[in-house]
Design a protein around this nucleic acid. Structure first.
Lengths: 230, 230
DNA sequence: GTCATCATGTAAGCCGTTACATGATTGC
DNA sequence: GCAATCATGTAACGGCTTACATGATGAC
């Protein structure tokens, strides 16, 4: 799941580890607080697998265009390590390693988006993460994502209802719990239905039965999100 | 969390491992499908810590009263191991190890119910589990449980709203996700509020301002669930 | 006679966590 | 000068998973 999140973020632009954590924490809110102890190793793994390329930079947040002037006789790597000691006056932060995604990474990303997570993962969180990156998916894959989630939820709803019926022996707390779970699942499903419907509306340009009013112009693509394949 | 679930179940009556899994799966639905690979070790741990006592039984599901007649010269443990080979005609299943909770186990249970889970655990699931066993808690502790959960949720709601405000750059999918999350959290909170209110109503017998109509009889305990301490 | 369910366990692995180690930059 | 934040990493451990090993009982 972490790999998916990282690749999804990097799809947008380059990031270094610390930034990734921040983004995940206060923008998506899906990983409450991903730890560095799992983030950095994940980045290394992704780099080893060719999904991302990391380059160490002496980054100036204020003047990111300046191309790291090598001071004197220092080799590239040493220059990075000693960046703090060179003469650069201000704006220089500690050497950061920025990662950008590769073609292989994009491939892995799409693979991860359709693969089902190992059992034991939080379904809701996993789906939320995928949805947050759904714009990078082809319209069909996107619909598939929504529909698989819907099927999952209707399954849960059935289980909840069976439980409510079978559990006549439940105490009031457990009964309330099951009821609330049922309601929440119903709410989730109707939300999904709205998403699915609006998704279908955007996608129904291709093969519309020869219609009279509101003729579809050209092969209609103005709603499709950039970067997706037809 | 597993320990809590096990102890909670055993509070009700004796169980053997296989039964515990079943109960957790299709009654509570909180652990979709707890695996034996984690269940049996957990039981061993609990036994080692004195929280439960396990006794191997050659159980007859149909005639549970029959007191395991030792056949001839076999020692107790061997009798269990060879139970399938002895002359018992029918109704005998494979040797099962049934566990019952001890006083120490009840102590640990109460401790676990108030302790906060290690980070990374699914809050909702954890709370659901606790609520399912809330009847075993003292009224005050129960209220505390509900209120701590409420605080947790209002925190999340604030975060969700901040996210909705800050995330003007979100695409429609992410926006919808954040919106839905906000709604769900609101729904959860109002559910909790109802629970809290009804909890207070049941508990407000002790120190009611000298009231006129509907005088509280004796020290009023008819709503309090059996097994809880005042 | 063979398949589903009952029943218990061990071993290896995954994916996350906290704790530890190290150091620069910025603001008060 | 000191604390907060930025920045990257390693090591140990926790809790759950699957896969493996083993076997009885009951239904068709």
């Amino acid at each position: 799941m972490l790999d998916l999140a990282i690749l999804g973020l990097l799809q947008e632009r380059e990031f270094h580890g610390y930034e990734i954590r921040k983004r995940l924490r206060d923008e998506l809110g899906l990983f409450a607080n991903i730890s560095f102890g799992s983030l950095y190793p994940a980045l290394s793994r992704l780099e080893a697998s060719g999904a991302v390329i990391g380059s160490e930079l002496v980054g100036s947040a204020r003047r990111p265009t300046e191309p790291v002037p090598a001071t004197g006789s220092l080799g590239g790597e040493l220059a990075v390590l000693r960046a703090r000691r060179d003469g650069s006056p201000r704006g220089t932060k500690r050497a950061r390693k920025v990662y950008r995604i590769t073609e292989e990474g994009r491939r892995q990303f799409e693979e991860l988006l359709v693969a089902d997570e190992p059992a034991g993962t939080d379904d809701a969180r996993s789906f939320g993460l995928r949805l947050a990156f759904a714009r990078h998916l082809a319209p069909q894959a996107r619909l598939g994502l929504l529909e698989r989630r819907r099927a999952q939820l209707t399954g849960r709803l059935a289980a909840d209802r069976a439980r409510a019926k079978a559990g006549v022996t439940f105490d009031s707390y457990t009964r309330s719990l099951v009821e609330h779970s049922t309601e929440t699942t119903e709410h989730d499903i109707s939300w999904l239905d709205r998403l699915i419907e609006s998704e279908r509306q955007v996608q129904q340009q291709p093969v519309p039965r020869p219609d009279h009013h509101q003729a579809p112009r050209t092969s209609g693509d103005e709603h499709t999100v950039k970067g997706t394949v037809p």
